[in-house]
């Protein structure tokens, strides 16, 4: 059970930000933080609306981070988004921490990005060869956004795990237009 009460006294701006993203428990828990929370929501909106990283690749990375960080909440909320972006059950299974990425039917670019994600989240660093390969395939801007996605969702997993946020019943992450 979520370890703090959900925030009920928030500014109209924060309330609107949360409503736009589906009124999820994680937002209702973190909203106690006020302005830093609003800043974090603004950064998240940019991450979710940027078209630099295709939605499919973004969701693969988020789910892989969710598995590696042992965050069932992220997996629960992002699995439907991933499915909507065309990711089927075989790749979803392969993303599990004990799954085999090689069995996921991923493109070479996706596989490279998922291996990079795995190395970075589990060792907190990257071998130069992996970085060079990712740069060749993605280019600098897309690689930076991939790293920012890993950065945001790994940090978010810590927050969700610390607060032990209940998985939402009947509420789904809604993506800003």
């Amino acid at each position: 059970m979520t370890r703090i009460a959900y925030c009920t006294s928030m500014s109209g701006q924060v309330r609107d930000m949360i409503a736009e993203r589906g009124d999820l428990n994680v937002y209702r828990a973190l909203a106690h933080a006020g302005r830093p929370f609003a800043g974090w929501m603004i950064a998240g909106r940019a991450a979710l609306t940027s078209k630099v990283v295709p939605v499919r690749l973004r969701e693969l990375v988020i789910l892989r981070v969710g598995h590696l960080m042992k965050c069932p909440y992220e997996i629960a909320q992002h699995t439907p988004v991933a499915e909507d972006s065309g990711i089927g059950s075989r790749p979803l299974d392969a993303l599990a921490a004990d799954g085999r990425l090689a069995d996921g039917g991923f493109t070479p670019t996706e596989l490279t990005v998922l291996e990079l994600t795995t190395e970075l989240v589990t060792t907190a660093t990257l071998t130069p060869a992996r970085m060079d390969r990712a740069r060749e395939l993605l280019g600098d801007e897309q690689l930076l956004e991939v790293l920012m996605i890993i950065s945001r969702w790994s940090g978010l997993a810590l927050m969700i795990n610390a607060l032990d946020v209940d998985i939402d019943t009947g509420r789904h992450l809604s993506l800003p237009p």
Binding site: I4, A29, L30, A31, H32, A33, G34, P36, F37, W40, I150, S151, R152, W153, S154, G155, L156, L158, M159, A162, L163
Partner: peptide, 13 residues
């Protein structure tokens, strides 16, 4: 507490 989490989250990531 929630602001502490946001701070840790930012610098960890």
């Amino acid at each position: 507490l929630t602001e502490l989490l946001l701070l840790v989250s930012l610098y960890y990531g």
